[in-house]
Write a protein that binds this DNA or RNA. Sequence first.
DNA 1: ATATTGCATACCTAATTAGTATGTTATCAG
DNA 2: CTGATAACATACTAATTAGGTATGCAATAT
Lengths: 139, 139
Amino acid sequence: MAVNTRTEYTLRALLTIMEKAGDPISAAEICKIESLPKKYIEHLLAGLKNAEVVHSLPGSKGGYILAKEASRINLFDIMKAVEDVAWELSCTQRGDKYCRKGECGLDIFWNDLTGELHQVLKHYTLDKIYAIRQKRSAQ
Amino acid sequence: MAVNTRTEYTLRALLTIMEKAGDPISAAEICKIESLPKKYIEHLLAGLKNAEVVHSLPGSKGGYILAKEASRINLFDIMKAVEDVAWELSCTQRGDKYCRKGECGLDIFWNDLTGELHQVLKHYTLDKIYAIRQKRSAQ
DNA sequence: ATATTGCATACCTAATTAGTATGTTATCAG
DNA sequence: CTGATAACATACTAATTAGGTATGCAATAT
């Protein structure tokens, strides 16, 4: 259980988009600034577009912009958009081979835990993450 | 990112051991009660033994017992013992191909987040999980 | 002694991750 | 209206991880 590169790279891309403040930035430029693989980032941004986290504009002056204020975009939404399954902890829903379909009695526990972890993720909005990064740069 | 079967099955095994209250219970019996694959559980319990979460006794009347009170065993310890990498979120430590080794400025953020998530996991001790399960059974 | 347990090692298959490649479609500048 | 520049869609692939299974050895109680 770990955050994977999808979330990591996506976050870096989003912060780069955010810094452009409404001016569309292309995948190519994002990847140049952040040293990321272009095709992979395009692929990830497609997920974000679907989840309405970003808007995209094709064409020569095109690129990506945030679909809403940075304070309304949180880590949970990002992960959900970009990882196929975002921290779904319930064994029942995963359909594990030896899952006893609720008979183990732990479904409530997994739900409680999932809720708490999602809460932590939702607490980290894009603007907060940006602020944490700025703080570090200032040191 | 999700909890996997390792943690799920291990937790069920530990609760079964806990219910025996100090009387050693064999992997075979655990697996009979919880419908789990014996070899896999043995493998997982080996990790728990290493982490000093359980003690084991070989021989005919042997089996597993908790190494300490249920209130002193928490989900973080369990996951760390049983999953190779327990929720290590830092890209630097994972050695991702396009990780910029701190240059992305997000290392502090990942550390903050990791800490918060670990805190949630540590809050769930085995006796609390047991209590949550009992509550549900009573319904 | 022997049955019963844990324990160690190695192996295997399927799914997931982390990308890459190729080609198509929409927009703007000239 | 044409060419460049972007996004977008689909498919593919290599490497790693997950989820087990198999075999055999070591320790203990009866």
